[in-house]
Design a protein around this nucleic acid. Structure first.
Lengths: 212, 212
DNA sequence: AGCTCAATACCCAATAATGGGTATAGAACA
DNA sequence: TGTTCTATACCCATTATTGGGTATTGAGCT
């Protein structure tokens, strides 16, 4: 990797942002921006003729969003590294990171030096997750597992928190998990007690804060 | 203007985007980026010690948004040119352009050359308005993040969404806003209908997704 | 002057969530 | 073996939310 040029494609529907990325990446030694595209479909098309080492892309793009595009790319060209750069922190990102469909997630609040370091880390095979700094601690904990220590939540409880976060009602959860509604209600009560919170809204905020 | 250095301040809470802008602007001959700030308050503070010729700023910033900041700046330092660079096209922008509170509005979908031309035009005293084409707008409606256009929520509705997101119950919100519980219930119903969602969980996810 | 729309308020019925209990089977562990 | 903990399940009562209506007021636009 040392003397080889790293070829990059940038995919972002905000052209000005893409231009900015190009400036930052293009100034790195041995980096070359092959192309910029503004939607997912175009990105896939370009991959039929261009073979980049790295793709920087936005999560929200027209025609084919970042995650869908990433999934397709990793399936057909697993060697290409993918870095998602997004406005906001989506809860599902961590799961997707773990499934190795993308190599890095970087929030747009990050700085150029952080992006540069992340690119270098990814090219070395590392996974990188850059979130808003205030939540960094909690996320690091997630990476090294686990919540059970801190919040003393059981696996089932965490599972149920996720389902509630996704908008399911107690009844739906009971049906999904093939359990009694009473059981889910008990779990909810225990979760609220353990976390010292009250109500669905606070629970969802907890889940988002800790990236469940 | 020909041999004088144009001093610029960049205000955007997305540091990576601000870095990109700095690269683009910094490469123009006789341009100097004095400072980058990530919120409106900080921008105003900086203006007590720095005297830029031009400010590039985001519409949506914490603490003091772009329009409020622009209004204050034009009132106290009318000589400073202000260019707003925003994610989406707000309908009120045109009115504000007409009131001469800002000198240019540029959508983030624009390209670096367009930005450069806009900056030069503004420095010559022109007003510039770069919006997405009407077709593009339709596409944005289908795919991405402009809830103003797409969902047509009123100010009161947005206020109530925030309170729900913060964990308040209908009763608490009614008490806080000194309104009837019935009114809050009506607002909730209207919000659900407009957003095509159902239940507190989905509402909070919407709020988080759109950074309310 | 008439129209539209946001914001307000109310009524009613059905469903969901919350909070107080109790209880039991099985796993983990000292 | 006895204890502790998780996950399971149930009962009851109260409060909250949801979804179906209708209606009025005031601001702003034509």
């Amino acid at each position: 990797m040392s003397n080889k040029v790293v070829k990059v494609i940038i995919a972002d529907d905000h052209a000005l942002f893409a231009d900015g990325l190009e400036q930052i990446v293009g100034k790195l030694p041995n980096f070359e921006v092959l192309a910029k595209v503004n939607n997912g479909k175009l990105l896939i098309q370009r991959l039929n003729v261009l073979l980049p080492d790295l793709i920087l892309m936005d999560l929200n793009m027209p025609y084919l969003n970042g995650l869908e595009a990433a999934e397709m790319i990793k399936k057909h060209r697993p060697g290409i590294k993918i870095i998602i750069i997004s406005m906001y922190c989506d809860n599902r990102i961590l799961d997707i990171l773990k499934q190795k469909e993308i190599d890095a997630f970087i929030i747009k609040d990050s700085t150029a030096p952080i992006l540069k370091q992340a690119i270098l880390d990814v090219l070395e095979g590392k996974q990188v997750f850059i979130s808003p700094s205030s939540e960094k601690k909690a996320i690091n904990k997630l990476f090294t597992d686990t919540f059970e220590d801190l919040f003393k939540l059981g696996a089932r409880e965490i599972e149920i928190i996720k389902l509630i976060r996704d908008g399911k009602s107690t009844k739906q959860i009971a049906y999904d998990l093939e359990l009694s509604i009473y059981t889910i209600e008990t779990h909810r009560k225990n979760i609220y007690r353990k976390l010292g919170i009250q109500g669905t809204a606070e629970l969802i905020n907890f889940a988002n804060k800790h990236n469940l």
